[in-house]
Design a protein around this nucleic acid. Structure first.
Length: 359
DNA sequence: CCCTGCGGGCCTG
DNA sequence: CAGGCCCGCAGGG
C-alpha cells in the first residue's frame, strides 16, 4: 500500500524521470519530502528551496549518470556505533555520513561519542543491492523528483541536525531530551498526503511556507506549546519494521564481488550477514498506546513540555514546516494521529510516561 | 574543510 | 549501450 499520495498519484499521472515529456501541467505540486523512500515520485515547485538544493534527509551523494539534465544521487547509508551502544537517554547513534569521500573516511576513524567504540558505516543497498538512488530534473516551473529503491538502514541525522551537532554543540547538547525523559524525536516530515494547492494564487505555483530559523528567532511562547504538542503527537519510535540490516557491511569491492555471485541467486551464508544486535522491532502495541495517549491527552501534554531549549532546534524547524503545510481542513491533533505511518522517533521509554497520560 | 555538481573514465551485463 | 561506481576538479559557504 502506498501511503503517500502525491500529485502524480492523485491525478493518476504516470511518468518517469527519463521521459521525454514530463507532466506539464500538474496544477498542484508536492510539498517537499525530507525522507522519500520506496519508488516515489514528486513534482515540486521550482521555487521550493529544498527541492532547489536537492536536499534529502538521507545522506545522498552525487553520482554521475552521464546525463546533465538529470541529477542523480545515491545513498551513503548511515554511520552507527559498532557496539550498538545505547546512550543514557536510550538513543542510538545514527550519524550522517559525510558526503565527501575523504571526510567520510576520516569520520569512520572517529569513535562513538557515547561508548568510544568504533563507528561503522552501514551501506545502503536498498535498490537491488545498490544504494537507493534519487533523481532530480528541473523543467520549467517544476522540479521532478524520483527515487528508486527502499532504504534498508536507519535514518541518519538530517543535514540540519548534523550541522547543528557539529557547529552548535558548544551551544546546545548533541542529544536532547525533554524533562520527561522522552527522547527528542525526529519530527514528522511534511505530511504525506499534503499537496500544494494553487487555488489561492495566480502565478500557478504556490510559494513555499516561510523558512524560519529557530536559531535566530524568539519563539512565541503561546504557540510553542501547541507546536511541541503536535510534534509530540506526531512522534513515534524509530521503526524498521521487519528489516534487519547488516552491521558489518562488506566493502564495496567485496559487495561487488558477492553481488555478482550470490546476491542475485538468493541467500547469504551466516558469515555474510552479521545480524545486528540492534533491534528495530518496534513494540507496535506500545507505540500505538503511546500515540493514542498523546492524541487523546495531547492538550494536557503540552503543559509538560519544557523550555524550548530542551528541544532540538532542527526538529522544531521540521515540525513547524510540517505544521505549516498541514491541510487547513483537519485539526492538528487529528492530523497528528493519522500521520503515524512515518516513524520518526528513535526510541521512547513508556515508563517515563506521565501518570496523567496513562490510559 | 567540506558540500555540491560536473564530467571523464572504467567496468559489467 | 545503459547503468553502475570511482575519481578529480571547481565553485562556494
Amino acid at each position: 500500500m502506498e501511503r503517500k499520495v502525491t500529485v502524480s498519484q492523485r491525478k493518476g499521472i504516470s511518468w518517469d524521470i527519463n521521459d521525454m515529456k514530463l507532466p506539464q501541467d500538474p496544477k498542484q505540486t508536492d510539498w517537499f519530502q525530507e525522507w522519500p523512500d520506496s519508488y516515489v515520485k514528486h513534482i515540486y515547485s521550482s521555487t521550493d528551496k529544498n527541492a532547489q538544493r536537492h536536499l534529502s534527509g538521507w545522506a545522498m551523494r552525487n553520482t554521475n549518470n552521464h546525463n546533465s539534465r538529470i541529477l542523480k544521487k545515491s545513498c551513503l547509508g548511515v554511520l552507527v556505533c559498532s557496539n550498538d551502544c545505547t546512550a543514557p537517554d536510550g538513543r542510538k547513534t545514527y550519524l550522517r555520513p559525510a558526503i565527501c569521500d575523504k571526510a567520510r573516511q576520516k569520520q569512520q576513524s572517529k569513535r562513538c561519542t557515547n561508548c568510544n567504540g568504533p563507528l561503522k558505516l552501514i551501506s545502503c543497498r536498498g535498490h537491488g543491492g545498490f544504494p537507493v538512488t534519487n533523481f532530480w530534473r528541473h523543467e520549467g516551473p517544476y522540479i521532478y523528483f524520483q527515487t528508486k529503491g527502499i532504504h534498508d538502514h536507519p535514518k541518519p541525522e538530517t543535514k540540519l541536525e548534523s550541522d547543528t551537532r557539529k557547529t552548535g554543540q558548544k551551544k546546545r547538547p548533541a542529544i536532547l531530551t525533554n524533562s520527561l525523559g522522552l527522547k527528542r524525536t525526529r519530527t514528522e516530515e511534511s505530511f504525506t498526503g499534503e499537496i500544494q494547492n494553487q487555488e489561492n494564487e495566480s502565478s500557478g505555483v504556490l510559494q513555499n511556507p516561510p523558512f524560519y530559523d529557530f536559531n535566530d528567532m524568539d519563539i512565541d511562547q503561546s504557540s510553542e506549546g501547541n507546536m511541541l504538542n503536535n510534534c509530540l503527537s506526531m512522534s513515534k519510535s524509530y521503526s524498521f519494521g521487519k528489516a534487519t540490516y547488516l552491521m558489518e557491511p562488506l566493502s564495496d569491492a567485496d559487495w561487488s564481488k558477492r553481488r555478482s555471485n550470490q546476491y542475485e541467486s538468493g541467500g547469504y551464508s551466516d558469515h555474510d550477514w552479521i545480524n545486528s544486535a540492534v533491534n528495530f522491532d518496534l513494540c507496535n502495541e506500545d507505540q500505538q498506546a503511546w500515540n493514542k495517549a498523546l492524541c487523546v491527552k495531547g492538550q494536557n501534554f503540552s503543559s509538560y513540555t519544557q523550555s524550548i531549549e530542551n528541544w532540538d532546534i532542527a526538529s522544531l524547524y521540521h515540525c513547524h514546516d510540517s505544521l505549516v503545510q498541514q491541510s487547513p481542513t483537519l485539526e492538528p491533533t487529528t492530523k497528528a494521529c493519522i500521520s503515524q505511518e512515518e516513524p520518526y522517533l528513535f526510541r521512547y521509554n513508556p515508563n517515563h510516561l506521565s501518570p496523567t497520560l496513562s490510559q
